[in-house]
Amino acid sequence: MLEIRWHGRGGQGVVTAAEILATAVVNEGKYAQAFAAFGPERRGAPVLAFTRINDNEILLRTQIYEPDIVVVLDKSLCNDNGVGRGLKKNGIAVVNTSSSPEVLLNIFPNASKIATVDATRIAIEKLGVPVTNTAILGALIRATRIVKIETIENVLKEKFKGVLAEKNFNAVKEAYERTLIFDRGGLL
């Protein structure tokens, strides 16, 4: 089983990102769960979401305490929000930042792989708004190959109408291309 923890801020589409990934996994024939740690929902407040992925039915219904992968949609959360907490040894971190992955080694000491992408810039370019969820998905797929990028494209077409689906997929593709990866050689 693969467990992913998403960190973002209200309004960035964190929960939607977790759901898009889960839907893509299910559409590829596997099992997935996507859920969030809901709280007072305010734009800008830190938000946690989770995705579980497995070949068989998933029974576990607790929150995720020791994720295999951490995805951070907002660099500012790296300062003091425990984004690295519980990350498994040889885990993966995917972060929205303009800096290089090596810079984040102290935040994710357990990570075998760190991927970074300037998702904010891509989102503004492709969508016109700083909603970074779809761009970060591109980086996550690049770093992990969890699902095929075409599967994500189909989910986006179902989820968003018309031109919005296209714009979001452009963000995914752009991020996929521009992702920088620091790899220490791990499990995934």
Partner: peptide, 10 residues
Amino acid sequence: GFILSHINEV
């Protein structure tokens, strides 16, 4: 609530 209502699964 949330555990089932807001989880996306198969």
